[in-house]
Design a protein around this nucleic acid. Structure first.
Lengths: 233, 233
DNA sequence: TGTACATCAGTGAACGCGCGTTCACTGATGTAC
DNA sequence: TGTACATCAGTGAACGCGCGTTCACTGATGTAC
């Protein structure tokens, strides 16, 4: 019973001797690596148990030892991808400084560092935040991954619920960012702007991914201007 | 040879006696209705030949008489959905008046009417355009349909190409709309704003669909403000 | 130090199912002469 | 008016395939006594 939840750890038994960092944990991570790679290179429809097992170089039955059902595998991939993104976003959205205190509802632990390499996390300006978010979208792999998540969410209510939860938290953090810098704005305006900011950023991702459109360099400047205006007019 | 192209008309033979409006054409439309309905209610993964046939009340073999392959069926559904949307958008994006002349590259025929019921198509203001587009997103059916198209596009390069073509044309029309009202703006700025406008509108659709987030009423006003600013500052 | 036993890690075969596709077939409707 | 024939519209069975899942099994590794 050393596992974290239903979708964690080997399926047929508890964690046992191979605790965190042990062989089991390593294997699990390696299987998820293969699944994620497949998601990026081949797309969500190719994310079958057999394909993942083959990509990871193990037998079907062995993959099922760690992820007893297809749903468990998908849930685990999702959890890892969204969790990683949340960790990357957290330092960018941190409140201005020690004076402000915790902005409430911030996820994850305020761990040592190495989250992404962005300079001076606390107290980023709107300009820096927008630039950092857009820079993330230069990572075609990540954009593709999120596009696949949307596609998975369209077919799978459990995935949709996770994605919604992610964006709800994301929006709350953007709202906190804005409220921290513009205490004069009414709460409704703050929430509205945060939501529209997300619409813009994710809409941009949609078009930049090549899924719904081609890359349009002339748009970047305008995008930056619009996003900045939403956060700090 | 009365058909329009590869994916049109019965698959095993030419149009023959049953021309446009004949029995064949009616059947085809009826099969596409069933497919579209299935796409909205059950999602893209359920869009199998068997499911569509069952939904339409015909046998599998008969569906294949009209759409010989699954790809042909999907292409036909896509063509109809995107075509209908393009027809709906055209009057909203029309140039201001007879003085302006054709804005170049406008799709479809400038047919009699009944395209959507929007009041006074030619010469709409930015405010009206934005309101009309957002009003369209109130149609949950349509939003769901587009979300499914994105999902299909993520798995199918042929679908992705069609979706890209649709948005390229869409963007060109928004750019023409803006250039018509703001002749002083440089072309690059016009293109950039048109692209960002689309990012915002489609991003909004993503969140309003329930796919990536929950509906946030407070955001609507801010959304309207931001979109309006992009088209007519 | 040795033995028995439980758990972990991994294998391999088989299942039933839904899928897209192929194909031979049938009746109805038009068309030529 | 009648007949022969081509096409249209629709049926029904079968195919091979990949899928998720089930399950019995096998070594390896730890652990208790």
């Amino acid at each position: 019973m050393s596992g974290k939840g239903d979708t964690t750890g080997p399926g047929r038994a508890g964690g046992g001797a191979a605790g965190r960092g042990g062989k089991g944990e390593q294997r699990r991570a390696q299987l998820l690596d293969a699944a994620e790679e497949l998601l990026v290179t081949a797309g969500g429809t190719e994310l079958s148990m057999r394909a993942v097992a083959a990509a990871a170089g193990v037998r079907l039955g062995h993959l099922q030892y760690y992820f007893p059902t297809h749903a468990a595998l998908v849930a685990a991939v999702l959890e890892r991808v969204l969790g990683r993104s949340a960790e990357r976003l957290a330092p960018l959205l941190a409140p201005t400084g020690p004076a402000g205190g915790p902005a409430g509802g911030a996820p994850g632990e305020d761990g040592a560092g190495d989250a992404g390499g962005a300079a001076d996390p606390a107290g980023a300006t709107a300009e820096e935040l927008v630039r950092a978010l857009l820079a993330e979208q230069e990572d075609a792999r990540l954009v593709r991954l999120f596009a696949e998540l949307w596609a998975l969410a369209a077919r799978d209510e459990a995935v949709a619920a996770s994605v919604r939860a992610f964006y709800t938290e994301y929006r709350a953090q953007v709202a906190a960012f804005l409220a921290d810098r513009r205490p004069d704005l009414p709460e409704a305006v703050v929430q509205g702007r945060a939501q529209v900011f997300l619409m813009l950023i994710e809409g941009a991702s949609l078009f930049r991914s090549g899924l719904a459109g081609v890359r349009e360099p002339a748009a970047d400047e305008e995008l930056l201007r619009t996003a900045r205006a939403l956060l700090a007019p």
